[in-house]
């Protein structure tokens, strides 16, 4: 894994195929280890009703278990309610229940029968007498609370009726009703727009063939396309003006009264809409020390006639 490989660059997310410097360590993103040779079960809370357990049992331990209890074993997770128990030892839980699992699943979402409790789980097997034997024990998880506490505070007491009103003002009915995050909101708006757009394929893939966009204006071609389809015969035409040229790369270039940026080799190109009428386009270049200048003026006229 730690060869200094000069490898191909991973394609994901990149838009570059050129690399500025010699890069030796853009290693191919390899898959992560399947296992870490641990015997372990870990519990995480997801919300007041569910927690998530993942586990791993190393081969040596598996062999020992098979030697002791046989080949065709049934695996279980034992879920203990350990609320308010200081030194949980496997025998002093408030209560417990078992879930039959497939060991190879390697993880499990556990639905809990009660909210506002603390839980711990054992991964284990049942022997021929149906007795549960622990392989490994998890951490203890205090679940997130759900619902308003029944406990009031003498010093900060509040009447039940007032408190209900306050909960309402605090937006208690909105809890969990949806999130306020940008990514979600924007995705939803995008989906809505696409659902009602005339040409749902438009933009939905990032790479839109540019041939669709024959229109040079700000009115994109798909709007026009829709208009023209309704007619039997049509002609649409418009015109634009392109001004281009080159000067010394360090010169200052003005088109009209505005300074215009030159490319590194002194070229410039400006494209503009050409409306009916006469247009003056003065182009002026001034040398970097300000001592020399040249000017070219275009006068362009457009007149449009429509004939049936």
């Amino acid at each position: 894994m730690d060869n200094k490989e000069l490898t191909t660059i991973p394609a994901s997310g990149t838009v570059s195929s050129k690399v500025e410097r010699k890069v030796e360590f853009i290693q191919q993103i390899t898959d992560l280890p399947q296992s870490y040779a641990d015997t372990k079960i870990f519990l995480l809370p997801r919300d007041p009703w569910w927690c998530f357990a993942y586990w791993e049992v190393e081969e040596k331990t598996m062999q020992e278990i098979r030697n002791l209890y046989g080949e065709n074993l049934q695996y279980f997770i034992r879920v203990y309610d350990v609320t308010n128990i200081d030194n949980f030892d496997g025998n002093n839980a408030n209560k417990y229940f078992d879930i039959h699992i497939n060991l190879d699943a390697k993880n499990w979402y556990i639905n809990l029968p009660e909210t506002n409790r603390s839980w711990c789980v054992d991964l284990g097997v049942k022997n021929s007498n149906g007795e549960f034997v622990t392989i490994v024990r998890s951490n203890i998880v205090i679940m997130p609370r759900f619902g308003v506490s029944l406990i009031t505070d003498a010093q900060w007491a509040v009447l039940q009726r007032e408190f209900e009103r306050l909960l309402e003002l605090s937006g208690v009915s909105m809890i969990g009703k949806g999130s306020f995050d940008i990514a979600k909101l924007m995705k939803e708006r995008w989906e809505e727009i696409m659902a009602i757009s005339q040409l749902p394929k438009f933009i939905s893939s990032a790479a839109v063939p540019h041939q669709q966009f024959i229109s040079s204006g700000f009115i994109s071609s798909f709007a026009k396309k829709e208009q023209v389809e309704k007619k039997e015969f049509y002609l649409k035409a418009d015109t634009e003006l392109i001004v281009y040229g080159e000067t010394m790369p360090d010169a200052k270039l003005y088109i009209g009264d505005r300074e215009f940026k030159l490319t590194s080799d002194g070229k410039f190109s400006l494209r503009m809409y050409l409306s009916d009428g006469e247009k003056f386009i003065p182009i002026k270049a001034v040398s970097s020390d300000g001592t020399m200048q040249k000017e070219i003026i275009f006068v362009v006229q457009r007149k449009t006639d429509y004939k049936e």
Binding site: L32, P33, Y36, F42, L44, P45, R46, D47, P48, W50, F52, Y54, E56, N107, I142, M143, P144, R145, F146, I175, G176, G178, S179, F180, D181, K184
Partner: peptide, 26 residues
């Protein structure tokens, strides 16, 4: 205060579900 987040549904599900739960082991 109760354990919570400002994510969808108010707890940890956005960061712990079938799309991403594989990351925690690592």
């Amino acid at each position: 205060p109760t354990s919570s987040s400002w994510g969808d549904k108010g707890y940890f599900e956005v960061w712990l579900n079938g799309c991403n739960d594989w990351i925690y082991k690592h």
